[in-house]
Amino acid sequence: MIDGEFNNKGELVFQIRLIAANEDLISETAILDTGFTDWLLINNEYARSLGWVLKKSQKRMQTAGGPRNFNIYQGIVVIDREELIVRALGGDEMEDILLGVKWLQIKRLVADFPAGVLTLG
């Protein structure tokens, strides 16, 4: 189980680790976005710098802001000491790393705002 925190916007923030192709382990902050229905959203440039495998280029997908093009990468994420190979959508204008609701199919989310408790595991 990993502990998270609620940021000043009320977003659900977790520390995750990404594994680069050269096996470097990189700690990152990610926001759990319940409106995002996939595994991971990351900036294209960052995905390329990690050496993640590009599976498909320019797939058009619907977002809350309208249709957009994304690249699809295969990456490795470490959450709760578990390495998982996931599909990562890459966008050019992404500033934050987002975790999507696919994680909730395999991890239990506890979000108790009044108590200040946020866990994923």
Rank of each mutant, 00 (worst) to 15 (best):
T34I: 11
K59T: 07
Q74K: 15
L32V: 10
Y46N: 04
G65P: 01
T34S: 15
L18K: 01
I31R: 06
E23V: 06
V86A: 03
A30K: 05
Q62K: 13
I79W: 00
G75D: 02
I85P: 12
E95N: 14
G65Q: 09
Y73C: 05
W52E: 00
I26G: 11
I31N: 05
E83R: 15
L54M: 11
G91D: 08
R68I: 05
F70T: 01
W52G: 04
Q62L: 11
E82W: 01
S57W: 01
L89V: 06
G75F: 02
P67L: 08
A64V: 12
A64W: 04
D80N: 15
I76K: 15
L89D: 04
G66Q: 11
V77D: 01
I85Y: 05
V53A: 08
N44A: 08
I85L: 04
R87N: 10
G51V: 09
N44Q: 07
L32T: 07
N44K: 14
A20W: 00
I72M: 14
R60E: 12
K56Y: 10
A30R: 09
A30F: 02
D24L: 13
L41G: 05
P67D: 00
L84Q: 12
R48M: 13
L41R: 08
G90A: 07
L18Q: 00
I42C: 11
A21C: 08
I26V: 09
T63R: 03
Y46T: 09
Y46F: 15
T37A: 15
G91M: 14
L25R: 06
E28W: 01
G90V: 03
A30D: 05
L40E: 01
F70Q: 02
D96V: 13
N69Q: 11
M94P: 02
M61C: 08
G75H: 01
I85H: 10
F36T: 00
S27T: 15
S57C: 09
D96F: 11
I42P: 03
K56P: 10
L54H: 09
D92N: 14
L84I: 13
I42K: 04
V53P: 06
V86R: 08
E23M: 12
G35K: 08
S57L: 11
E23A: 09
T34N: 14
R81H: 12
Q62M: 15
D92T: 08
F70S: 05
I79K: 05
N22G: 06
D80M: 04
T29F: 04
N71Q: 10
E82T: 13
T29N: 06
L54V: 13
N71P: 10
I31Q: 04
T63K: 06
R68M: 12
N43A: 13
D24H: 13
N44S: 00
E82N: 12
I85S: 13
A64L: 07
T29H: 03
A88R: 00
A88Q: 00
G35T: 04
T29K: 10
N69Y: 12
L25N: 11
